[in-house]
């Protein structure tokens, strides 16, 4: 059995809770917090009841118990940090993660902020305390890209890594190409369907894709980069004409994130891609090609976001830790 404390009970947090309820994963939740409340129960929290409370618009637990209380006082093996991403300060997640690692607790997170800003510090802190930090869900949701590169492709040298890292932009570009929509029309549609935030800047200006490149560069490609190192162009200026001009040559336009390892290049920009190319995926899908020396080229395609899909990546990390580090208790 593995005991976890979950910080953040939104789309991802609730997705994890539902999967634990639906399947026999041998995971017990002993700590839980949202922005307004918390619960600590070493015997195991009734997560079905917590989901009901959230569903009614209530806090998940008791007001007065903070996320910091859960980090410091709950009895757990792994902290699951799934609060909102802040790419400037990484807080409050960074503090939560440091606190758990210092208590010699493993950490699994879907939160891009701490991994993009402080990976080397957190990795060293985890190593010094003999625990693991895993972050599969931070890049491309359900696609086990980090696991594939670190474990499956161990021993390979990666020369280039590129693809579609942002589902919102991919949806907008797909719709602009399909029905000659303007950028504004396609964005409005994406908002209606819940694919784009009220303030879409983070997605459409390529910041989200850029942060994911930084995470990959720093954690699996041995580079040391920050968001400022990413050459970044978003999709806001694209015209239906431009998509049609691409279409005339059996091509389309996609927002592509790219790392050229040796040249130290990280860039996010709209690019012309042949429609037959494997990276041209529809809707909100993500797709990434990894160029390696031994394995050749590999392309991964899958859902880059979503409650259950992102929970899948978190649960994969939890069970990885479970199998290797957590003794039955």
């Amino acid at each position: 059995m593995i005991r976890i404390a979950i910080l953040g009970f939104g789309s991802v947090g609730q997705g994890i809770a539902r999967a634990i309820l639906a399947k026999d994963l041998d995971i017990t939740v002993t700590g839980l917090a949202d922005s307004r409340s918390g619960i600590i129960d070493a015997a195991g929290i009734d997560i079905a009841a917590a989901l009901d409370r959230k569903g009614n618009g209530d806090p998940c637990g008791t007001p007065g118990i903070s996320p910091a209380d859960v980090v410091a006082k709950a009895e757990y093996d792994v902290l699951v940090e799934v609060t909102p991403t802040n790419v400037e300060t990484a807080e409050p997640a960074l503090g939560h993660i440091r606190g758990a690692l210092r208590r010699r607790k493993h950490v699994v997170t879907s939160n891009k902020g701490p991994v993009a800003l402080a990976y080397s510090e957190l990795r060293d802190l985890a190593a010094a305390n003999g625990v693991l930090l895993r972050y599969e869900a931070t890049v491309c949701g359900a696609i086990p890209l980090i696991h594939a590169i670190k474990e499956g492709l161990a021993g390979n040298t990666i020369s280039r890594l590129y693809g579609v890292f942002n589902g919102t932009c991919n949806y907008i570009l797909t719709r602009m190409a399909e029905d000659s929509l303007t950028y504004e029309q396609a964005l409005a549609e994406a908002r209606e369907l819940g694919y784009a935030e009220a303030d879409p800047t983070y997605d459409v200006e390529g910041i989200d894709a850029g942060v994911k490149l930084v995470i990959l560069a720093n954690t699996v490609l041995d580079m040391q980069t920050t968001l400022d190192d990413v050459e970044r162009t978003g999709i806001t200026l694209l015209t239906p004409d431009a998509l049609r001009l691409a279409e005339d040559q059996d091509c389309t336009i996609r927002l592509i994130g790219e790392i050229i390892a040796e040249a130290g290049v990280l860039r996010v920009s709209p690019r012309i891609v042949a429609k037959s190319h494997s990276l041209v995926v529809e809707g909100t899908l993500n797709a990434v090609t990894v160029e390696t020396d031994l394995a050749g080229d590999l392309t991964f395609i899958g859902k880059g976001a979503g409650s259950t899909e992102t929970a899948s990546a978190v649960i994969g990390d939890l069970l990885y830790i479970h199998d290797r580090y957590v003794q039955s208790s």
Partner: peptide, 11 residues
Amino acid sequence: LLIIEPLEDGR
């Protein structure tokens, strides 16, 4: 001006 380059670029 915004330039959209092909995926296989000239670098």
